[in-house]
Simulated assay, not measured.
Amino acid sequence: MKEIIIGANEADKRLDAFLKSYLKEASGGFIYKMLRKKNITLNGKKAEGTEKLKSGDSIKIFFADETLDKFRGRDNNAVSNAAEDDKKAFKTIGNLPIIYEDENILLVNKPAGILTQKADRKDISLNEWLIGYLLSTGEITSESLETYRPSVCNRLDRNTSGLVICAKSLAGARKMTQLIKTREVDKYYRTIVSGRLTDRVSLKGYLYKDEARNKVYIKDQDPGDDRYSYIETEYEPVSYIKDEDLTLLEVKLVTGKPHQIRAHLSSIGHPIIGDAKYDGRKVPGLNYQLLHSYRLVFPKDLEPPFEMIAGKEFTAELPELFEKIVK
């Protein structure tokens, strides 16, 4: 027999929807049959499947272990190994600066060189670090990962550093995804570009990504090609480094497309230093684009349980190398 205690991440789901997700190899007809025969119960009673789950509810599944594993489509060793991999990722990457944390979200300052999400099965990314961190604090367990896996909500390139929004709960994931999609979270970056820029400017254009080359191309006018997406990037000069003919910029990412800031600035003749892919100037000791997700500003009208971040601004300290180049 398997008992599942419903937590906040499963609450408000229909029982049948939860069971179809949990027993992913079982048909809907089989699940309803098991409910009718009381081989699956809710709070010790027969259930129809249409019930809305509440935190603390008890679901009992009266299957043999082998049968349960078959309908879950899982390998116990694989599940255990995944949790161990998450713990190993946390130890490998180590402690990262956490800028803010509550029961639903976590904001972390990601160093350059770390993937936000896996590109390959063997990769270690911030996603695995997050789960390993939460396992280490006891906020989640290997068993809770069977029904919900915390994850990052916004992606940064491997060598772009700075603020990443992570969802610890399903509620956090849904809310942050919504805010990012509707552009209600203002995202600001710091970078250094070649040449002198003196005015605050809003750049508009159209971007196409060549997946095979992992490179994007930008046109000023709509090319009438469905492969191109509209983009908008705002920038404001912070300071000018006269001796090196470099400008420190704060960039607001209005739309969020791959390599958008890097390619957009390069397209106007002011590439980011160190960014070889987009014609950036070589700088001793720097072998990647100097781009840092510096500041996040949340909207003011957030309701519980997100009132603690309503209208708040969070910043991530610049990396040491960035500070050194600025000075």
Rank of each mutant, 00 (worst) to 15 (best):
A212R: 15
A8M: 14
I124L: 15
L134Q: 04
Q178V: 13
I231T: 11
K20T: 11
H264C: 07
G94M: 06
K219F: 04
K87E: 14
R155W: 03
N109T: 03
G28F: 02
M1D: 15
I268V: 10
T50A: 15
G7F: 00
D12W: 04
L290I: 01
M34C: 09
V201S: 05
F63V: 12
V185T: 07
P304F: 10
A212I: 11
V254L: 07
T255K: 01
K277R: 08
A78F: 08
G256W: 00
I40N: 04
K209M: 06
L126I: 02
N95Y: 10
A112F: 03
E317H: 06
V254Q: 07
A263C: 07
D57V: 03
S266P: 10
K187L: 00
S151P: 09
L253I: 04
K70P: 12
E3L: 06
K37E: 15
D123K: 06
Y133K: 10
G224C: 11
I273L: 03
A82R: 10
E250R: 04
I5A: 14
D243I: 07
Y208L: 12
D275N: 03
R121N: 15
K122A: 14
P284I: 04
H270M: 09
G138D: 07
D75P: 11
D123W: 00
K242I: 05
L126Q: 04
L15F: 05
I192M: 10
G44F: 02
T116K: 04
P304C: 11
Y230E: 15
N214S: 02
D275P: 11
P299H: 01
L134F: 07
I5V: 15
E139F: 05
E139L: 11
G56Q: 08
E313D: 03
D57K: 00
S136N: 12
R174I: 14
K277G: 12
G280A: 03
G195A: 03
T160V: 12
N214K: 14
Y32D: 13
P304I: 11
K24E: 13
V185E: 03
L145G: 11
E101I: 03
E250D: 08
V108R: 00
L134N: 07
T50M: 05
A8W: 07
L207R: 00
N214L: 02
H292M: 12
T198H: 12
G138E: 06
I261G: 01
L19G: 14
D16R: 14
L296A: 12
Y22M: 08
I309W: 09
S229M: 11
A82T: 12
S293W: 00
